[in-house]
Design a protein around this nucleic acid. Structure first.
Lengths: 124, 124
DNA sequence: CCTTGACTTCGAGCGCACTGCAAGGAGTGA
DNA sequence: TCACTCCTTGCAGTGCGCTCGAAGTCAAGG
């Protein structure tokens, strides 16, 4: 169980040190990060795994406040799996709808691109 | 060539009247929208078609300022098709990268969901 | 004539998710 | 010992994309 400074954790998660502190303050992590005697944060592998889940949720567009709710459920411990599942299922629906919408728009944009490619080729 | 009030245009485009005015003010439209003698805006079919293109670009995550650049190119008229094409191609790349990333994260979330479904089923 | 309601402009305000800054403490290499 | 760098907290600021509110105009219906 290695223990990383905030800079190292930032590098490994792709977040900034600022954002890591912000997530902790905002209740997105499961608990306060451990401290070295100096008061500096020390991140465990477990911390990093959770933060990766958080970044997955964030990267798929889940709002901070929903991530916080999910973290709160996990923090509570066993017994609320149905609620956690519901939250994730609802999120998946949103993401899938979004993917479909974006894909549709992208197809229309591709059509436009094809038109321009035709024009540009002709004038070349 | 029908001519619509801002409320009707809002309904047809899915934007709010507020947003339609904002887009016009911000240079996302090709020209100022026509006015009735009363000063009220009147949207043409052509306006609506362009606004649909704008919403496609926005819905796929193109920043307002890039939409504005694209609108400026179209406004300039023939001769800059290569530039327009470049802008759209660059945007397509961004969108496709994003789709891939989101899809990947979604798969990981699905895995988590499957775990919870197993747990919930077992306790049922 | 009077009210209602949709429209106008302008500028301010908001929600989100960071991001930056100031002031100070702590650990490390020369 | 000194300089340097990384870390700490707290709070303010930023950028984006709207969104709202105030105050006024105008056309139509009762």
């Amino acid at each position: 169980m290695t223990s990383l400074t905030i800079a190292e954790a930032a590098e490994r998660t792709g977040l900034t040190a600022h954002t890591l502190r912000y997530y902790e303050r905002d209740g997105l992590l499961l608990h306060s990060v451990d401290r070295a005697p100096s008061g500096h944060r020390r991140y465990t592998d477990e911390d990093l795994r959770w933060i990766q889940m958080v970044t997955r949720l964030r990267a798929t567009g889940m709002p901070i406040r929903d991530v916080r709710r999910y973290a709160a459920l996990v923090r509570e411990g066993d017994g609320n799996e149905v609620e956690r599942l519901g939250l994730l299922l609802a999120h998946r629906e949103v993401v899938e709808r979004q993917l479909a919408e974006v894909t549709g728009h992208l197809r229309a944009i591709d059509y436009k691109i094809a038109l321009y490619e035709g024009k540009v080729e002709q004038s070349a």
